[in-house]
Design a protein around this nucleic acid. Structure first.
Length: 157
DNA sequence: GCCAACGTTGGC
DNA sequence: GCCAACGTTGGC
């Protein structure tokens, strides 16, 4: 069973938004490498929910693949900012899964902390800064879950 | 098919 | 807001 990491800007869609909605379609991915990762995600697989472009970027929680990738409707909608005139319903270019809320971590685990955590040296997140959908190894998955259960080492909690 | 120009991501 | 990294586009 594979694990994943999904990036989102919390100003647009945060872990709290997912908790409120319970399920959301993960639309708007317009990068081929991210697409191939999206399409490899299987129902029931877990993914870290990562907050980017925010004051403290980091891992905010966990979601689960509710429905495997199907055509992203926004690519056909001229009104959408994700509209792709080169795509057609007959031959869709972009895909999206549905993801469901699993949990919000007691604290966001900052990117800066991931960078200094032993065992995460090879993590895709730390080497491919712009890839918005990426795999996470079992080892990395376990290490980060352990971090989530610790109190913030910088916060005196 | 190369590669320069351009646009976007995302940390800081 | 700045800017480095890097993905995409398009001329040749």
């Amino acid at each position: 069973v594979a694990h994943w990491l999904l990036k989102t800007e919390p100003d647009s869609f945060s872990i709290d938004d997912l908790e409120r909605k319970r399920v959301e379609h993960w639309d708007g991915v317009r990068n081929y490498q991210a697409r191939s990762n999206l399409r490899a995600m299987r129902q029931g697989e877990l993914a870290f929910f990562y907050h980017s472009s925010t004051e403290v970027p980091g891992v905010a929680g966990i979601c689960v693949v509710e429905r495997e990738a199907y055509p992203d409707e926004s690519q056909f909608d001229p009104e959408s900012k994700y509209f792709d005139p080169k795509s057609s319903p007959d031959n869709p270019r972009w895909w999206m899964p549905d993801v469901a809320f699993v949990k919000k971590f007691a604290r966001v685990i900052p990117l800066a902390e991931l960078r200094t955590t032993p065992g995460l040296e090879e993590m895709v997140l730390l080497h491919r800064p712009r890839l918005s959908v990426q795999p996470v190894s079992d080892t990395e998955w376990n290490i980060i879950n352990d971090l989530a259960e610790q109190s913030d080492p910088a916060g005196g909690g």
